[in-house]
Amino acid sequence: MKLFSETINNLERGLSYSSLKNKTIAQNIANVDTPNYKAKDVNFKQQLSNEQSRLEAKRTNVKHLPFSNQRNNIEVSTRQNVTYNHNGNSVDIDKEMTELAQNQLYYEALVERINGKFNSLKEVLRGGN
């Protein structure tokens, strides 16, 4: 029997993704003036695809297709098809700041949700008083 639902595990994975995204954005911002620096990105679509590949389904018939159980790590990739600055750098500071703000909102929403889950658990442990 699991102590916690899959929700907490999913929120934890979301926080890991958001944390890596934040580190990647910070690295891009820090290197905005570095000649020939290529901006990095954490691709949500790739992350979503990775998470979907981890879905498990109950097979009630041997003819049903099995789901893959492979675990993939979040990956950081260099952005492709971007415009380069005069020094060969591909960091767009406006884009980075926008992504940073979006990621911060995402992270805060996840933290608020996981806090709600833990507060519910605390309430149950106290006996609902």
Rank of each mutant, 00 (worst) to 15 (best):
K122Y: 10
N22A: 11
D41M: 04
K95C: 04
S53H: 02
N115W: 04
N103S: 12
R71E: 03
T83A: 13
E51V: 13
Q70S: 07
K45S: 15
S90W: 01
K117I: 11
K95T: 15
L105Q: 14
N103F: 10
N61P: 08
K117T: 11
N28L: 06
N50F: 07
S49Q: 11
Q80C: 04
N129T: 15
T24E: 07
S16A: 02
E75W: 06
S49T: 14
T78Y: 15
S18D: 06
E112C: 05
Q46L: 13
V91Y: 01
Y107G: 04
I93V: 12
H86Y: 06
Q52F: 09
K95I: 15
L125D: 01
K23M: 01
L121K: 10
Y106D: 15
G116R: 12
Q46R: 05
N73E: 03
K40Y: 02
Y106R: 15
I74G: 01
A30M: 04
R54C: 04
S90E: 06
T98W: 03
N72F: 05
H86D: 09
P66S: 10
S49A: 07
T24A: 06
Q47W: 10
V82P: 01
L100S: 08
E108T: 15
S5L: 00
S18K: 05
T24W: 09
V91H: 00
I25P: 10
N81I: 14
K58E: 14
N72D: 00
S77Q: 09
Q46W: 02
S19I: 03
Y17C: 08
D94E: 11
P35Y: 02
V32Y: 10
N89C: 06
D41I: 06
T60H: 11
S90I: 04
I74E: 01
D33T: 15
V82E: 01
G116D: 08
T34V: 07
L65C: 00
H64L: 00
D33M: 09
S68H: 10
N103M: 13
R126M: 11
N31V: 12
R59D: 12
A57N: 03
H64A: 01
V76M: 06
M97R: 11
A30R: 07
S77V: 14
Y17T: 00
N69M: 03
L121P: 14
N50S: 11
Q104E: 05
R71S: 01
N87R: 05
R113T: 14
S90T: 15
E123W: 14
R79M: 14
L3G: 06
S77L: 12
E99H: 08
H64Y: 00
R126V: 13
I74K: 00
F44N: 08
N9Y: 09
D41G: 09
V62F: 12
T7C: 08
K122G: 04
R13A: 03
S16M: 00
Y37D: 02
N103V: 04
V82F: 01
Q46H: 02
Q27T: 12
K40D: 02
H86G: 03
K2T: 10
Q52W: 02
K40H: 06
H86R: 10
P66G: 03
K23W: 01
L125G: 03
N81V: 08
L121R: 15
G88Q: 13
I93T: 13
I25K: 08
R13I: 02
K45Y: 14
